[in-house]
């Protein structure tokens, strides 16, 4: 019990004193996670819409792979990205291993299927009569898409929240492809693992507070955005 209490005090002290390293780690975490989720959103939503709205041969197979991807253990993604980025690997010449870009790549791999999967599920649920009604109202293709995105706003924001949650929580792949390099690829989750193995539980607890606060703020923003209209 004493340890938790001490950790709590230490956490508050570190946060209040504005420890520069912690500040950097937090910024890196935000930069990496938000970049990853932004890319996943930009790629994932259009793909999800395409898969959800259209029927084409092979759709079922694609959906099966997307669904498998939703449950893909991050370390598996980490392992394959590591091998891809090895100096001796196919993308070795890019020199991306042990950079934040590599972490972003891994996080995209684990969050993209979630966003594609949940978006396509939302679009598959749209009543085909609704699609026809929107067309009949005289909407151009682009306008149709905008209306549908608005109609599925709840589900799409839920998809982004789920993706972000996965990305923020992810540690195995970030450790593997990022290497937890101080002042470079160290993010909140990987430094927590390291601090625990160093025996610095107080620091780890402080980091956990920051991580939870971040997750809370971002999820809160997205959720209030999602629920904005529901008050009518």
């Amino acid at each position: 019990m004493g340890l938790i209490y001490e950790g709590f005090l230490k956490a508050i002290e570190m946060l209040l004193s504005g420890d520069r390293e912690i500040y950097e780690i937090t910024l890196t975490t935000l930069r990496v996670c938000l970049s990853a989720i932004l890319v996943s959103t930009i790629i994932g939503i259009p793909l999800g819409v395409l898969i959800g709205l259209h029927s084409f041969p092979g759709k079922k197979i694609i959906l099966i792979f997307v669904n498998i991807g939703m449950g893909l253990p991050p370390v598996v993604a980490g392992l394959y990205i590591t091998m891809l980025l090895w100096r001796s690997g196919p993308l070795g010449h890019l020199g991306l291993l042990y950079t934040t870009h590599a972490i972003i790549m891994a996080q995209i791999v684990v969050s993209l299927p979630i966003i594609i999967g949940l978006t396509s599920a939302a679009f598959q649920q749209i009543d085909s009569k609704m699609l026809m009604q929107i067309k009949a109202l005289g909407a151009t293709k682009l306008q149709r898409l905008v209306i549908l995105l608005k109609e599925t706003k709840l589900a799409i924001l839920a998809a982004i929240i789920a993706g972000l949650g996965r990305v923020l929580a992810e540690v195995g792949a970030a450790m593997m492809v990022g290497g937890n390099i101080r002042g470079d690829t160290r993010i909140l989750t990987t430094s927590m693992v390291m601090e625990v193995s160093k025996g610095n539980f107080d620091v780890a607890i402080a980091l956990s507070f920051i991580l939870m606060t971040l997750a809370f703020i971002i999820t809160f923003l997205l959720t209030s955005l999602q629920q904005r209209k529901r008050r009518v």
Partner: peptide, 30 residues
Amino acid sequence: ERRQLAVAMQQSLLFDMNVSNNVAIGLKLR
């Protein structure tokens, strides 16, 4: 040409927005 043809389906299929905006939607699209 499509915009010369208006359809009201059996189910009302309204959007998640207020009634004014629902009624205005076709004009907004135009």
